[in-house]
Amino acid sequence: MASREPKLAVELRNLTKRYRKVQALKRISLQVQEGELFAYLGPNGSGKTTTIRILVGLTKATSGDAFLNGYHVERDSIHAKRQCGYVPQSLNLDHELTVEQNLDIHGRLFNMSRRKRKNRIAYLLHYIGLADRARSPVKELSGGMRRRVMIARALLHEPRILFLDEPTVGLDPAIRRKIWALIKRIQMDGTTIFLTTHYIEEAEFLADRVAFLSQGELITIGQPQDLMDSLGKWALDTVENEQMKTFYFRSQEEARQHASVHPGPFSIRRVNLEDVFISLTGRKVA
């Protein structure tokens, strides 16, 4: 029996964006498979948000092409927009209106019937754990609750791809973990997720694959574990002449042996994605 060919949910071909003198994106090409949770990792100003804004139709690319489920985001924008939901970095809800009203307006914009809007709103408010706040004005909700409402709004029209731009920025660690659990659940329900983050642990915990972006350039793409394994399993941080240096080893034992002959303070820990980013770019992610 022939296996089912995985479909492309997101495809970028030589995507370039220039703002006057600043080259925000430099010929980015990548593909995200249907059902994947793909993380776009890089420091502030690396081009993560610009990529997402082009994909959802908020920014025009200078050159290159972007597709959502095969629809070109500019030439076939209405169809492309139907494929995706978008949760921007900044909170963009109507604060005077209730949670239910914010969601209802979104449903109307996507031409959903009254019955479907009602059912989906009830389902999603339960899904995000805010069923009891449906009639609360958004201004009365906490930051974490507002973020969950934005996620529910983006899911209302049942998009096949969800774009999350720094979904947990500014949230405390406990709320952040709640959002992570929600994101994982959305993926398990069959939605492709494309998220940007500069939190290393977020990408490590959530992503099936990560792409590193630095100064508008795509540095590398791969599975988090494979990328980390390419350096080693263990990292030894040392301080030499007031400079921090990190060495990588296959085993903890090797790291300990190296540390024993090394003068000065040191620490041994597991390799993380930040190490991969630094080894490739010489810069930190956050």
């Binding site: 959802v56 963009n92 996507f110």
Partner: peptide, 8 residues
């Protein structure tokens, strides 16, 4: 932006 990303 909510209007800009909507299919209208």
């Amino acid at each position: 932006e909510e209007f800009q990303v909507a299919p209208i």
